[in-house]
Design a protein around this nucleic acid. Structure first.
Length: 159
DNA sequence: GCCAACGTTGGC
DNA sequence: GCCAACGTTGGC
């Protein structure tokens, strides 16, 4: 099992939007970056815990917890000419882009970027690295524990 | 809206 | 295979 942080623009899909989805589950479509794709394809397992992060918004930061709820499968939007994620150079017999499904676990208080940056325990967090643009990043178990237990005051059986 | 940082594209 | 140009991300 691995821990993850996944960015979503709240205008697109906020933690509340996720909670309101049928089955509280959403297909994580639209990833068009090979590193992020490879994380989904090669390293994610069903049940992996996810920090749900709001990006490109007035208050960027961790907004909730989710879980990976499917293995990676071809991203349907790459074949849809009407989609902004359409990729003409992909084909159904050789798909280029994949996504997992993500299921809502809980909404948390907003742990903002400044707070995350202020914590020495999180100094090496991948998502905080200078110039990082990856929408999916692995989270170290120690970082996960610090964020959930210390910052969010959650117990292990809360999620 | 600005801009730093990074990824991708395509000519050579 | 190099690298300039361009596009995108995302915080501020």
């Amino acid at each position: 099992m691995r821990y993850w942080l996944m960015k979503s623009e709240p205008d697109d899909c906020s933690i509340d939007d996720l909670a309101a989805m049928p089955g509280a589950t959403v297909a994580w479509y639209g990833v068009r970056n090979y590193q992020a794709r490879n994380f989904m394809m090669n390293q994610m397992s069903v049940g992996d815990p996810v920090l749900f992060y709001h990006s490109s918004c007035p208050q960027p930061g961790i907004a909730g917890i989710a879980r990976v709820s499917s293995l990676a499968y071809p991203d349907a939007t790459q074949f849809d000419p009407g989609s902004r994620f359409y990729d003409a150079s992909s084909s159904p017999d050789k798909p280029r882009w994949f996504n997992v499904d993500v299921r809502f676990v809980m909404k948390t208080r907003l742990v903002g970027l400044p707070e995350l940056r202020s914590r020495p325990e999180l100094a090496n967090m991948r998502v905080l690295a200078k110039g990082n643009r990856l929408s999916i990043t692995p989270v170290d178990p120690d970082e996960w524990r610090f964020i959930t237990e210390t910052l969010l005051e959650l117990r292990r059986d809360d999620f």
